[in-house]
Nucleic acid binder design. Structure first.
Lengths: 223, 223
DNA sequence: TAGATTGTTAATCGATTAACAATC
DNA sequence: TAGATTGTTAATCGATTAACAATC
C-alpha cells in the first residue's frame, strides 16, 4: 500500500463548496459502497464517474475540494475513500432522527431500511391524532405531538423528517426549531421558513414527477 | 383585464433551458396554486420570489425562457401563469402512472394524495411477491410483475415509480423500457441505466438526509 | 522504464445578478 | 401623470472541462 505524508490537511472551507458537489459526493459514496461490497479495492476517477454519468475530471475536482485522497497511477483506495467521504458528509457517526406525521408516508419512512445503513437512527415518531398515540410501528412508539420538544431534547434528536399535511408543516417546523433541531427534511408540498441556523431540504414527490413530464413533453431530440 | 397580442410565440427550445430553471418552475407553480386558492389575483416577480428565497430577476428570467407572461406595472395574473406553467411542465393533462414494488414505500406512494392534485393518476401497481398479487390497496389491484409489459401497453402508462429493492431495480427498469415507458422515478438506492429516450430521476431518501448532515457538520457561519 | 492516473491550472462554458428602457 | 413592474441586455459570478506536469 502506498504511503502519504500529509493528507486531509486542507481547511474545509465549507462556504466555497458548491451544493452540486455535495450531492454528487453522496452518489460517489453510494457507488463506492456497492464496489466495496463487491470486493473491489481501487477505482479510478474515470471508472467511478462513468458509472454515474460524470467525467473523470469532475470526480477528481469534486474530491479535491476536501483533500488528496487518490494515488497517481493507481486511483482511489475504495475503503479509504468511503471513510473519507463519510467523514465529509458527517455520516461517520449515528444521527438520531424524528419522524413527524405518521400517515402513509411517515409509516413508510419509519420502515425504510436504507436509513440505518447510512447512519441514521429513527428514534421517535409523533402524530397529532390522539388515536395514533401509543401505537407501536416498526418498533417505535408514536407519541403525541405536544411531547415533541421534551423528547427531542431528551433523546438529543438532531434531524426531523416532516410528513404532515401541508397546512400543518410550518407550525410543526417552528416547534422543531424551538426544540433545538439542526435540520429538517420536509415532505409536505409547501415551502417552510426556517431560521438560517437550521438546514432545510424539501422533497416534493409530485414535483419529482413534474421534472420527468417536462423532459418527456419537451423531449430533447439530441442527447 | 389588460390585453396582449402575441404571447407564447417563442419556440420552446427545450435544449437551452437549464435544469435548475425547470425545478424552480415547479416551485413557482406550487406557490401560485396556493395563492390562487387564497383568492389572490396578481403577483409580482419580487413577491413570488421572496416567498421561495429567489430574487425578482431570477423569477422573471426563468419565466422569460418560455414567453411573455407578465404585465409591466402590474405583475403576473395568477390564473394565467398557473395555466402557462402547467402547460410548460406538461401537467395540463393527466398522466397514467405505474408503481412497481409494493413494500412500505410503494404503499405510501399508492396512497399519496398529492399526485392526483398535480395531474398524476396511479392506475397500476406491481409486485414480484405472489402473495401480494390480487391485493387491493387504495383501490388499486396489485398485479404480478410478469404482467407489467401487457398492462403498461394496454393502459397507455407513461411513467413508472420504482420502489423495489436495490438489486431488482435495473431489471425492472429494463422491463419498463421494453414496455415503452417514457420516464422513471427511481426510489431504489442504486444508479440505473436507461436509454437516452427515457427520462430518469433518482430519489434516494438517505441521500436527502446526507445533504442535511453535511450542512450541519460544516455549518456555514454566514448565511 | 512505460503506462496509468492523480491534483491543479487555465480556458471555456453557463447561470445569476444588476440595471434600465419600455410599458401599463 | 407618477409609481410599479416587466422583459432584456450587459456585467458578474460560478462551475465544468481540457490539458498537463507530477507521481506512482
Amino acid at each position: 500500500m502506498p504511503h502519504r505524508k500529509s493528507k486531509n490537511a486542507e481547511p474545509l472551507d465549507a462556504g466555497s463548496v458548491p451544493k452540486a458537489v455535495v450531492s454528487r459526493l453522496s452518489l460517489y459514496l453510494r457507488e463506492l459502497q456497492h464496489l466495496l461490497r463487491d470486493g473491489k479495492e481501487t477505482i479510478s476517477s474515470g471508472a467511478l464517474g462513468s458509472r454515474l454519468g460524470f467525467s473523470d475530471a469532475q470526480v477528481r475536482k469534486d474530491l479535491a475540494y476536501f483533500g488528496h485522497f487518490g494515488y497517481p497511477g493507481i486511483g482511489y483506495r475504495i475503503d479509504e475513500l468511503v471513510a473519507a467521504v463519510k467523514k465529509i458528509l458527517g455520516t461517520d457517526r449515528v444521527w438520531p432522527v424524528a419522524i413527524i406525521g405518521i400517515g402513509n408516508l411517515g409509516r413508510a419512512l419509519l420502515g425504510y431500511k436504507g436509513f440505518s445503513r447510512q447512519g441514521f437512527d429513527i428514534v421517535a415518531a409523533f402524530d397529532s391524532d390522539p388515536s395514533k398515540s401509543g401505537l407501536i410501528i416498526e418498533g417505535i412508539q408514536v407519541r403525541p405531538i405536544d411531547t415533541l420538544a421534551a423528547v427531542v431534547r431528551e433523546q438529543r434528536i438532531r434531524l426531523g423528517m416532516l410528513a404532515v399535511p401541508a397546512p400543518a408543516a410550518q407550525g410543526v417546523a417552528d416547534q422543531l426549531v424551538l426544540a433545538g433541531i439542526d435540520g429538517i427534511v420536509n415532505f409536505a408540498p409547501v415551502t417552510i421558513n426556517l431560521p438560517p441556523h437550521v438546514s432545510r431540504l424539501g422533497v416534493d414527490l409530485a414535483i419529482e414527477l413534474e421534472q420527468i413530464t417536462y423532459d418527456v413533453v419537451n423531449r430533447l431530440r439530441v442527447r
